[in-house]
Design a protein around this nucleic acid. Structure first.
Lengths: 190, 190
DNA sequence: TGCATTTGATAACAAATGTTATCGCCAACC
DNA sequence: GGTTGGCGATAACATTTGTTATCAAATGCA
């Protein structure tokens, strides 16, 4: 799992092995809860195989807010970083193979990494990229119609459309399942 | 302007003076463009007095995406950091007093700051906070009605409601000016 | 002060979207 | 192989939201 990332990091083999040794492999079926609302997140997950969604409860309705796929890391970052209860649930969509790392281990890895300029910059850039992504998600909700956002999803994140049940996608787009169905219907007729 | 921030940073007076000397004070009337779409951003602004909006053109319609007030910093961050054309315009709403710093200066300040652990951590935390904010903005658009978001604005960001013309707020909420007017009308009648 | 411009409210109508209910398909599970 | 439950499509109707137009009030400026 980790070899493919090896040359992205200029690290001694010893450091590399120390770091990767902190990760624990698990195989879980679909619909496995990895974190529940109000718990304090102590784990981050790296996806080897499978697909995960992040969701929260809004007046009895499930709202899915994020999707993650192979080679991405998942966690309830704010809860994880600040030791506060997570507002969100994390759950597998497909049977998945995951690697998790405990906060204690990740904290010490990060504190070491922050002293190595090029790794620190990679880390900072990564955070910035996430910020930019969320800015774009926000902008698209105030400027585009649900149909435009669905088309955008097909183009930018085809994995979601292909692998995720449609009712999760509907809540992610902020529309009802019926309306997403209508949007699709309208598109095939064109 | 800078004294009030002085004790937030453990810096020698010499460093502090070097840094603050990079900032240039300007006074501008309302509706002054500070950055135009497609330009590469070379300046960041700190607001001493006044109020600024960030907006972009969407098929001929202006969409306002952000508001900033006293003691906040404004810029087209992605353009500024990556030297790419800015997708957004930056413009004053009120007559304003601003301090701007050039990218060259800020880059060297930042590269020094990154070597000082507690300042680096402040910087990283600041980026994380922005990410968390934008995640929340995104989530609220998919889970809340425009009316709930307007009420939320009154509660969380009263400055916006008090000082910003309503048609800017409407586009920020992703609704038409007519509809925002209706929402307000409905609220006073309750 | 007086005029022009901006801003906000409202009405009437059109379009988009939500809600509830029904039906059919398909996959998981005995 | 049959049954069950989840998922998605569709219809009918209700509600929300957008569009266009008009007017009044507020504001900025000469």
């Amino acid at each position: 799992m980790f070899e493919k990332f090896r040359n992205k990091f200029k690290l001694s083999d010893e450091q590399w092995n120390n770091y990767t040794a902190c990760f624990n492999r698990i195989e879980v079926p679909s619909k496995t809860p990895l974190l529940k609302e109000k718990e304090v997140s102590k784990k981050m997950f790296l996806i080897e195989k499978g697909c995960i969604r992040v969701w929260f409860n809004n007046d009895g309705k499930e709202i899915t807010s994020q999707f993650f796929f192979e080679n991405e890391t998942v966690g309830s970052i704010e809860s994880f970083m600040k030791n506060v209860p997570s507002p969100t649930n994390i759950e597998t969509i497909e049977p998945s193979i995951l690697w998790w790392v405990h906060k204690n281990d990740l904290d010490s890895i990060l504190s070491e990494i922050k002293e190595i300029p090029h790794l620190r910059d990679m880390f900072i850039n990564k955070i910035f990229e996430r910020t930019f992504d969320y800015m774009k998600y926000f902008f698209t909700t105030i400027k585009d119609t649900p149909q435009q956002r669905y088309l955008n999803l097909i183009k930018e994140r085809p994995q979601i459309v292909k692998r995720v049940p449609q009712h999760y996608i509907a809540s992610y787009l902020g529309v009802s399942t019926v309306h997403l169905s209508r949007i699709k219907n309208k598109l095939v007729k064109k």
